[in-house]
Design a protein around this nucleic acid. Sequence first.
DNA 1: ATGTCTTTGTGAACGCGTGCACAAAGATGG
DNA 2: CCATCTTTGTGCACGCGTTCACAAAGACAT
Lengths: 251, 251
Amino acid sequence: MATGRTHRPATRSRGIPEATVARLPLYLRALTALSERSVPTVSSEELAAAAGVNSAKLRKDFSYLGSYGTRGVGYDVEYLVYQISRELGLTQDWPVVIVGIGNLGAALANYGGFASRGFRVAALIDADPNMAGKPVAGIPVQHTDDLERIIHDNDVSIGVIATPAGAAQQVCDRLVAAGVTSILNFAPTVLSVPDGVDVRKVDLSIELQILAFHEQRKAGEEAAGEPGAVAGNPEDPGQGPDGDVPAVMPA
Amino acid sequence: MATGRTHRPATRSRGIPEATVARLPLYLRALTALSERSVPTVSSEELAAAAGVNSAKLRKDFSYLGSYGTRGVGYDVEYLVYQISRELGLTQDWPVVIVGIGNLGAALANYGGFASRGFRVAALIDADPNMAGKPVAGIPVQHTDDLERIIHDNDVSIGVIATPAGAAQQVCDRLVAAGVTSILNFAPTVLSVPDGVDVRKVDLSIELQILAFHEQRKAGEEAAGEPGAVAGNPEDPGQGPDGDVPAVMPA
DNA sequence: ATGTCTTTGTGAACGCGTGCACAAAGATGG
DNA sequence: CCATCTTTGTGCACGCGTTCACAAAGACAT
């Protein structure tokens, strides 16, 4: 789960569970694909397979939105696309600013998935004066000094932070002070924000570490029955009673 | 959370819950920062604050690893860094290939967070013949034709997919066939993989959509008490008993 | 040694999310 | 109109994860 939220107890907005909300974009994507192929209706079984989830879960998810299906037939694709879009707030325009136009920021600016779903890159912001005015993805980069004005002029409420870790909290504070209430954070830092501000984080390094854990486990398991495994590290699961004292470990 | 796994029921490897595994990298990062400041010990309260979690949760997480704390004092920073690194499998070298060297792939190749944690970018692979040989982040890009050989020669078990959605499943199949057992997927598609292969996905668009949902909810809530809200869409939360009829009605 | 004080480690309760399994609803055919 | 068949919507039970609250463990001072 690359994603995590800041505290706040429940967040069950109007009864729609958080887990369901997280899956709605998945359903929406599958439905959009069906819509483009002019498929009129789809059963929970088919759609669930396309979205990679359990069909019962999908039906329960949709039940939170209302009863939009027809028994014996399935769901009307167009209708469902509309309902989910509306529920997610994608029927309106969301201006977004991206702060930190390095490799990642540029990649995000160029990412087509934003524009296609109601998100509009309203501005690119970077602290490097040399970047100012230079167009990235057809949008001229602006300097950090103008951050507050940009947020205000474009009525931005969603900000994307793609700066180095050291600058992230400071940028975050300025975004929030300027009125941003939702932040997507790519910097490897824990951001602290006041109540009422949502933060989601995407941490590439953490994802890889989680994969490494499972990878190691898999290697350890098959090494148990099969001595000469792939990437053999001889001492791992033995579990010495007190653990060996470390050498100085890398960062 | 931008992250999700493919099915598989439990995955509680040796008793360490999945949720705990996902937090270990977070603790590790905070501990590393402390270590660099030569802080010798840290209490669960302090560390939890730094990692942005509940202190009880942190203690329970650590309890799955063993009893590494000292009551009345706290945890030894260096020791804990080592233990978590070992648990996550970061004491060994993980060669990684990145497939799809577009904007995002290049950003990933340049991302410093990989190298610092035992992950080594073993190769960059792209389908564009014009890219072949061109260095990105100091590493020459290789052509997709050589994918299987590259995986094999470098004994790669972790692959990163940063291709367009259309190519992702095909690349995935080839990676898996070549021996990759863990995949980090940035393409906006649901990948299907055989049992035993772990997939984590990072989907930028989905993260934004989840933020938009909460943003809309916030706007709706404050609009209830305050008529002239920010981005006013006049008809949203009233919640007509049956929802308003969409443009196209189902049969 | 003994008492006090801090902090860990964990038992237990609670809530959320998941998946099964089935009844109700509607389509379809005769 | 009735029977049958398909597919939804959901009641229910179970398991995981979170949080509280506290006893046990050790440090430290006297």
